[in-house]
Design a protein around this nucleic acid. Structure first.
Lengths: 249, 249
DNA sequence: CTGGTTTCTGCGTTTTTGTGCAGGAATTTA
DNA sequence: TAAATTCCTGCACAAAAACGCAGAAACCAG
């Protein structure tokens, strides 16, 4: 097998699978590891692949995972925010959790909107405070430094006192079987209280988190009224949720 | 699994869920905890994540704005802050109002200090949150956009429930005859409640505000235990306050 | 065809890198 | 304060890379 031929094959494999192992390549092509290594080196020098210890990765792989844009998947979150905002009307009483998706929504609220927002998330509150017309109510209690949200029995008790028109949950994981799940016990308690305290539960989730599961359950799928992702509602991934009777936007 | 691949997976998880536990990662990827820790360390060194005890946090979420330093009379306020801090000891329960002097104090708190701070001021809370060892409790209620502080009967009721060791009041105006005065009715209600809920009232005021009066009275001079300005305690301007039995620092 | 040159490939050795393990230190939690 | 995690450091071992070298193949005039 010619050198050029071999390199073309390697490149093909890299682009196909996003990664190759030098060890597997050398048995496939039946050449020594050195040869493979030299080939990879050459391809790397020409910027065709990214050489790592043990093999090589495709360039796209690196772009997807190591892109250093501030917030992850911001465009998707903007799309979600727009859809979410369409559910908010003047005079409404809105309960929100924390999370970057919620913050994106907070930033995108139209300036003329007049509504009351209640939340325990400090970053979300900061965004709401910048808005000219909305009333902001913060739930008081101890602040969890990790999640930057007020947690504890006081916070839960306060949330239980309110009856909001709508509640937006930034979601960590959602699955048809397991419902909404999360990985922070205190935050889960908060979210449970929020779900109990509103007429309509809206779940915001980027598609990547759909059909994933975390250790602690927040609620079952039946307790959700609306699911918003950046995908088109007709997308097959969302079909199970539509079938479960959830309004999908 | 390649190292880069693994790190990409970790980064992905962090960005998705805002936090990861090393323990859960090492069962997911099936490598030793050491490897995970080394990966997290490396990612942290490159600024991709924030490493914490037991796992890592997403960077985007932790980058809450540092309110910039356009503060009026900052040097004087730094002096005041230092004096105020000398009154705070480990284990104390500290109640604070808002205001730039208080924020300066919050910024200057020594990192080893372990205490509990309670406040309704959002900017102050933000500063407290950056501190590694203090517990932060926020008083919930409606947020006044002018003063960026929670105001209302709920907030007052909550403050009345606590009995703090010490209370720091950022002062708008102080005068021997009129006592502490202010110009925002709601804020005054809050401050009154704070004074009632602590063992020791400390009033922080730059010299410029000493012997000035605002429309609404917060309390009389006799209710103050300590007055802190940037001036030397022996300064003649402060004499009337010393004579009134106030500890002046 | 042929001798010389260049390129390519494989081999052995030395370095480097990646991973897991053991212990003691540090930190968190009850 | 004591118990339990988690963290760090040094070490050992294995896998992979780098390097130098030599034989083989290809290439190229004359």
């Amino acid at each position: 097998m010619l050198k050029k031929e071999r390199q073309a094959y390697i490149l093909h494999q890299v682009n196909l699978h996003n990664k190759v192992l030098s060890s597997s390549l050398c048995t496939e092509i039946n050449v020594s590891e050195d040869t493979i290594r030299r080939d990879l080196q050459e391809l790397a020098d020409n910027g065709k692949v990214i050489k790592v210890h043990g093999g090589a990765l495709s360039h796209s792989f690196n772009h997807v995972y190591f892109s250093s844009n501030g917030v992850y998947s911001q465009n998707q979150k903007k799309t979600i925010a727009q859809k979410a905002i369409s559910l908010i009307h003047n005079g409404m009483f809105v309960l929100t959790s924390g999370g970057t998706t919620i913050i994106e929504m907070a930033r995108s609220l139209p300036p003329q909107l007049k509504a009351t927002f209640i939340s325990g998330s400090i970053p979300a509150i900061l965004e709401y405070m910048h808005h000219p017309n909305i009333e902001v109510i913060i739930v008081g209690d101890k602040i969890s430094k990790n999640s930057k949200i007020t947690v504890g029995s006081e916070a839960i008790a306060k949330i239980k006192q309110v009856k909001a028109d709508i509640c937006f949950l930034g979601t960590n994981a959602i699955d048809v079987e397991q419902g909404i799940t999360d990985n922070d016990w205190e935050v889960v308690q908060l979210k449970k209280a929020m779900i109990d305290s509103c007429k309509k539960v809206v779940c915001l989730s980027i598609a990547e988190k759909v059909n994933t599961v975390q250790p602690i359950q927040v609620c079952r799928i039946t307790e959700i009224d609306t699911l918003i992702t950046e995908l088109n509602p007709g997308n097959p991934i969302l079909k199970p949720y539509v079938d479960a009777g959830i309004e999908v936007l």
